[in-house]
Amino acid sequence: MNARVRRHARPLDLRRGLIDMNHGSGGRATTQLVEELFLKAFDNEWLRAMDDQARCELPPGRLVVATDAHVVSPLFFPGGDIGSLSVHGTINDVAMSGARPLYLTAGFIIEEGFALADLKRIVDSMGRAAREAQVAVVAGDTKVVERNKGDGVFITTTGVGVVDPALAIHAHKAQVGDRIVVSGSIGDHGVAIMSEREHLSFDTRILSDTAALHGLVAHMVRAVPDIHCLRDPTRGGLATALNEIADRSGVGMRIEESAIPVRPGVRAACEFLGLDPLYIANEGKLLAICPADKAAALLAAMRMHSLGAEAAIIGEVVSDPFHFVEMETAFGGTRMIDWLSGDPLPRIC
């Protein structure tokens, strides 16, 4: 320990210091950053070994791997930050197979001049999120790019988990007659982010819903092992997730507008920005498709869990040669819910 302290003339200035090119050189400055920042936040036996890789035990089952790059702007937003998001996002991708996530790796691309204080906030938040999810960050990498060649910090995480081979949850498994369930209100994350965007700041009490969903998923597969599909409707929102499943499964979907939970604040923000909550991103919600006769049991199980307390059945899978998603509007008409095209753009008048 003492030998390590002597390697660095003075500790990192985590209050006023800035990232410079040396921090990405792979030399002493990089080691100092790893030891004084990342190791402290993620502390575990694999990182402490300071090897170039982690050797991990896996319980029996099938290996599940997912990777996700996080480039959110702003880096800090109501309800979370890029750190917690980069943990939750990847854990959720692993969990949507029904798997239990076990390990994460993290790659950081940091822009020269980025404040060490902000980096510490982000890394601490990642550490906290990982501990709460009982997932260890076992390996990582840091690169620094010149000023103006990055947007503060980009974080790529890869998650590894194990799934019971008896589970077969896939996007192509939806069957005609299945019920569609969402775990709670939609659009919270996207609206929280938009409320902080440059040129667009507005006051809202909506917080991002960023959360790790594997606890809820474990609860769900215990109650109903033959869930057909699971998706976390992130970018593109619920509408895009439904279209993806309809497309892969070769079915249509029919949902009911009045059954979809949307918070009043999200509805209001979408109303005045001219956006549709169905296309707004979520980071702590899931969409499940299960046989009709299991829907009540699944819903009851979800509502027992804190992240599924507002779960609702929103529609059913139907036969449709064009794989369209249609919605019965609260008004009594029917409209099609298309794929998102481009970025959601606000209307003019």
């Binding site: 509007t329 008004f331 009594g332 008409g333 029917t334 409209r335 209307r347 008048c349």
Partner: peptide, 17 residues
């Protein structure tokens, strides 16, 4: 006349009514 009306008509499926 207005695109805003066109949008509302399509979005709420008014022709069905």
């Amino acid at each position: 006349f207005c695109g805003g009306h066109t949008h509302a008509i399509a979005r709420y499926g008014l022709p069905d009514l």
